[in-house]
Design a protein around this nucleic acid. Structure first.
Lengths: 213, 213
DNA sequence: TGTACATCAGTGAACGCGCGTTCACTGATGTAC
DNA sequence: TGTACATCAGTGAACGCGCGTTCACTGATGTAC
C-alpha cells in the first residue's frame, strides 16, 4: 500500500508524477488546463488536496512543470525521428502515418500543447511557444545535417520547420475529433493535413533566397 | 436609465448583446471561454445573474451564439476583402498589413476563434470549425471568380484557402502577445507570418493536379 | 546493531467565497376593450 | 382616448456545492550516536 522498498524521495517523486499525469489527463479531457481544479488533480492522483502543496505552489506552477514534461516528450519524438534517418520519396505520407500512430498513443501531450499554445495563461502560453520554437530549431538543425533542402539558409529552414510543427500540432485536435465522426470526414481531415505538408515542402523547394550583393 | 423610447423587445435585444459582448471580452481576457462564469458575464453586462436565463439556457448556449456572431463578423471581413478586389504584386505584404490593423481592432473575435477552435467543449469546437470551413469555402469561391490560381481544381483551392485562414487565425495570438514584448520579437513574428503565407502561395502556384485519364 | 530523535509526505477538519440555479417578486411595457 | 388586465425582462434572497487555502496532526522513513 505504501510502496514498500522505496525511499521517501522516490515516493515523493511518484506522487509528483501522479499529479502531473492526472493534470495532463484532465486537461485533455476538459479541453483546457484552466478548467481543471487543484482538488480534481489531487483526487485523480489519489492524494488529499493539501498534499498538492508539498509538490507545487499552485496550479500555475504545475502547469509550467507540465510544459517542461511535454517538452521532453517532444525531444524524444525528435530523437526517434532522427534515428529513422533521411526522409525518402513519399516522405510526407510515411511521416504522416507515423505521426498519426504517435498521436493516438500520445493524445494528451499533443492536445495539451495545442490548447495551451493559444488558450492558457500568458506565462503558460509563452512557455509552450518557447518549447515549440526550440523544437523547430532542433528539427531544422537535423534536416540541415541530412542535407535536406540545402538551398535554404538556416533561418529559412527554421521557419519552414516552425510551420511544419505548427501544422502538425493544430491538425491534431481536428483529426482526433474526426475520429468520433464518420470515416469520410476522418479521411478528409487526414487528406487535408497531408496536403498542407506537401504544399509547405513544395513551397520550400521553390523558395529563392533573396540575393545579398 | 431604462432606455426610454425603446420597445420591450429592443431592450431585451440590447441586454442580449451586452451579455454576448461581455462574454467575448472576458474570454479574450481570460484566454478561454471555459474559465468565464455565468455570474461574471451578467455582472459585466450590468444585469443580475438570474436575468441571464431570459436570454440563454446556460453558458453552452451563449457560447454557440457567440460562434454565430463571430461567424458573421468573418463574413463581413470577407465582403470587405472582396470589395478591395484582386490581389496584386505584393499582395501578401499588403494583405498582412490590412489583417494586422483589422486584428488590433478586433482582437477579441480572433482570439475567441483561436482559443475555442482547440480548447472549447466538443460542441463549441465543432461550431467554430464549421464557421472556419465555411469561410474558407467562400474565400475559395471568391478567388476562383477572380481567376486567381486558375490551374487549381476548386477543391484544391479550398484546401489552400483553409490553410491560409488557419495560418491567419493561429498567428494572431503569437503576434498579439509579441506586442507586449520588445519590438524585435514583434517584427520576428510578423516576418514569420508573412513567410508562411508566401510559402503557401508559392506552393500553390507550383501545385500539379494529379492526372485523371 | 539498537535506540532516540528529527524530518517531512500525506492527513483531515475547517474556513470563507463565488459559483449555478430555484423561487417568488416587481413594475414598466404591451394589449384589449 | 382612457382604463383594466396580461405579459415578461429584470430583481433579490436563498440554497447547496466545490473550490483554494490554513492549520495542527500523524506516523513512516531517515539520521546520529
Amino acid at each position: 500500500m505504501h510502496g514498500e522498498g522505496l525511499t521517501r524521495l522516490e515516493r515523493k517523486q511518484r506522487t509528483r508524477e501522479a499529479l502531473l499525469e492526472a493534470a495532463l489527463m484532465l486537461t485533455s479531457q476538459r479541453g483546457s488546463f484552466a478548467s481543471v481544479s487543484l482538488r480534481e488533480v489531487a483526487r485523480e492522483a489519489g492524494v488529499v488536496p493539501t498534499a498538492f502543496y508539498r509538490h507545487f505552489r499552485d496550479m500555475d506552477e504545475l502547469g509550467l512543470a507540465l510544459v517542461a514534461d511535454v517538452g521532453e516528450w517532444l525531444r524524444r519524438l525528435l530523437r526517434e525521428a532522427r534515428a529513422a534517418g533521411l526522409p525518402d520519396v513519399d516522405m510526407v505520407r510515411r511521416s504522416v502515418r507515423a505521426y498519426l500512430s504517435y498521436l493516438s498513443e500520445n493524445r494528451q501531450h499533443v492536445l495539451f500543447i495545442a490548447s495551451e499554445r493559444t488558450g492558457g495563461s500568458p506565462a503558460l502560453r509563452r512557455a509552450v511557444r518557447e518549447e515549440l520554437d526550440r523544437f523547430a530549431r532542433e528539427m531544422a538543425h537535423d534536416l540541415r545535417s541530412l542535407d535536406f533542402l540545402p538551398h535554404l539558409l538556416l533561418p529559412t529552414l527554421e521557419l519552414v520547420c516552425a510551420m511544419v510543427v505548427h501544422t502538425m500540432i493544430s491538425a491534431a485536435p481536428d483529426i482526433l475529433d474526426s475520429l468520433e465522426e464518420d470515416e469520410a470526414s476522418q479521411e478528409r481531415r487526414v487528406e487535408g493535413f497531408v496536403f498542407q505538408l506537401r504544399l509547405i515542402f513544395l513551397g520550400a523547394g521553390q523558395w529563392k533566397e533573396p540575393e545579398v550583393p
